[in-house]
Design a protein around this nucleic acid. Structure first.
Length: 152
DNA sequence: GCCAACGTTGGC
DNA sequence: GCCAACGTTGGC
């Protein structure tokens, strides 16, 4: 099993959206960065666990855990002309972007805030804590995963 | 709202 | 293939 952090703006999709649909598969779409896409396409597998990180909001940090219930497939939003994620260069024969499906596991009683994450030795050199980081899909080692859970 | 950092685009 | 310009991200 692999461990990940997925970044999201809670105004778009938050841990509450998962918690309010506890048995449902939720489509993780709209990733439009090649490095993040490559992780989704090549490395994110069924059963992997994912920390949900809330960005660009009042309380920035880790909000809970979800699991992967469907591995890589063509992101449907790239074909939807009315979607902000529409990509006219993508075709069903040659899709450009990748989605996965996620399902709720846990919501933290309190968000593990970014400043606390930055204080973790295990996360010192992780891209999440680097200034200017924009990657929205980030791998975690088992040790990093555990250290983040221990911050709760 | 500001602005630093970053990824992408496009002219050459 | 280089790199300046531009648009976006994201913490503060």
């Amino acid at each position: 099993m692999n461990y990940w952090i997925f970044k999201t703006e809670p105004a778009e999709c938050s841990i509450d959206d998962f918690a309010n649909a506890p048995e449902q598969a939720i489509v993780w779409e709209g990733v439009r960065n090649y490095q993040a896409r490559n992780f989704l396409r090549d490395a994110v597998k069924i059963g992997d666990q994912v920390l949900i990180y809330h960005s660009s909001c009042r309380v920035i940090g880790l909000a809970g855990i979800v699991e992967v219930v469907r591995a890589a497939y063509a992101d449907p939003s790239q074909f939807q002309t009315d979607s902000p994620y529409y990509d006219k260069t993508a075709t069903t024969e040659q899709p450009r972007w990748t989605a996965v499906d996620l399902r709720y596991l846990t919501r933290f009683s309190q968000v593990v805030r970014l400043d606390k994450i930055k204080s973790s030795v295990m996360m010192k050199n992780h891209s999440l804590t680097q200034r200017g980081n924009r990657l929205s899909v980030m791998p975690l080692s088992k040790e990093q995963w555990q250290s983040l859970l221990d911050l709760q």
